[in-house]
Each structure stands twice: as structure tokens, then as C-alpha cells.
């Protein structure tokens, strides 16, 4: 019957967030906060997020832009005295917030993350040119031209070094078994949605 004492948000995190069952193990030491390269930019560092989850602050956690500051450097993971997979919990929380439509509006990392996934899901491999252009033009055409012009010398340098191919715009790399690949991802998504109650 001890289940009754746990708040609903902690239970939700355990069920719907990647590695969410670890949240209760945090001992509030703050090593993660001190180890994070973007630490100064988090509204709430990881250990605070964990405490907020335990306090049932669902709205505050899921609308926060904190989790979107994770660079996936894994510093927090290797330094955590209790070995919490903090990086994955942050990814999982970000995913939950995004799936529920609660992530902050115009959160750039969230947009980039979606663009990245949709880019790879299309052909099975990332098209770096389309990804870069997509990011430049995410705030409209005029801003896109401005962004692209600002990064022009970088782009031209990459083309000259044969590390960027303008022809990628018209197709580019991809896998052969696209239909099998698409069916596989669709099935994986179905299973995940059912298990995490997103469906």
C-alpha cells in the first residue's frame, strides 16, 4: 500500500520518462549541477528538477527550458555518487514535455532535435546540408537568408575542404531499404506510445 504515498507526478515520471525510475534515488548532493557545462544557463539544475518531481511540481518541470540545455556530455552521469543516468532522464523529461506540448515555445534545441530526427527518419541517414539550412530558416525566409549569409564563409570553407556537398540539396545519401526502415520506426513508435500512454 506504500504506493498511495507517492505523488502522481513521480509515478508518471517513472512510467513515461526514460530511466525515470531512478529519480527517487537522487540524494540532492548537487554534483550534477556543478559538473554541467551549461550549468549557469539552467533555470533548475538536475537535482532541483528531481526534487521538484518529488514535490509534484508537474507544470513547472515540464514547461521549464532546463532539460533542453543538456549537451549530452555525460559528466553528471559519471560523477553521480549514486550512478543515476541523469543525461537520459533529462532526455526523457524533454521528450515527455515535447510529446505533451508543454515545452517552451520556440525552444531552439527542441526545434533542432525534431528537425534532426525528421531528417534522418526520411532517408535513414542525416543530410547535413538540409539540416543546416532547416536550422537557418526556422524563423522564416528573411532571417534564414541573414543567418545563411552570416555563416557563408564557414559553408564555403566546408565545400572547399570537400566536407559539404551543395548537391545534397537534391537528394543525397540514404539507405536502400527505406520501406523496411520506415515500417520499423512506425512499429517502434506504436509500441512506445502504447507503453507510455501517448497513443
Amino acid at each position: 500500500m506504500s504506493e498511495n504515498y507517492r505523488n502522481n507526478f513521480l509515478k508518471e515520471v517513472e512510467e513515461r520518462v526514460e530511466e525515470g525510475h531512478w529519480v527517487k534515488m537522487c540524494m540532492q548532493c548537487g554534483v550534477c549541477a556543478g559538473s554541467c557545462p551549461l550549468g549557469p544557463h539552467w533555470a533548475h539544475p538536475p537535482q532541483e528538477i528531481f526534487m521538484m518531481i518529488r514535490a509534484g511540481k508537474r507544470e513547472e518541470v515540464l514547461t521549464s527550458d532546463s532539460m533542453w540545455m543538456c549537451t549530452s556530455c555525460y559528466n553528471c552521469v559519471v560523477r553521480c555518487p549514486r550512478k543515476l543516468p541523469i543525461t537520459h532522464i533529462m532526455h526523457g523529461l524533454a521528450n515527455l514535455a515535447y510529446r505533451l506540448g508543454l515545452s517552451p515555445k520556440n525552444q531552439t534545441t527542441q526545434k533542432f532535435a525534431s528537425m534532426f530526427w525528421n531528417n534522418l527518419a526520411q532517408t535513414g541517414r542525416v543530410n547535413e546540408l538540409k539540416l543546416s539550412l532547416g536550422m537557418y530558416f526556422k524563423d522564416g525566409f528573411a532571417q534564414g537568408i541573414k543567418n545563411a549569409m552570416a555563416m557563408q564563409s564557414v559553408g564555403l570553407g566546408m565545400v572547399k575542404a570537400k566536407r559539404l556537398n551543395p548537391m545534397e540539396l537534391f537528394g543525397g545519401h540514404g539507405i536502400k531499404d527505406k520501406s523496411g526502415f520506415h515500417a520499423m520506426l512506425k512499429k517502434a513508435r506504436e509500441i512506445e506510445d502504447r507503453r507510455k500512454n501517448f497513443a
Binding site: 526514460e18 534532426f116 531499404d177 520499423m184
Partner: peptide
């Protein structure tokens, strides 16, 4: 033969957990 993208460290937000693991499993 016919390897695919691993999802890297930014695929999580749109891709979630199982679809991402499945990429590598393929």
C-alpha cells in the same frame, strides 16, 4: 551494408526511447 543513422545525442526529443534504440539495433 545499408547501415542507418544512430540518432546521435539529439534524436531523443522527437524519437523517444524505443525508436532510438531500434535504430542501433538495426
Amino acid at each position: 551494408p545499408d547501415w542507418n543513422c544512430c540518432g546521435a545525442s539529439i534524436g531523443y526529443a522527437e524519437g523517444g526511447e524505443l525508436p532510438r534504440i531500434t535504430l542501433s539495433a538495426r
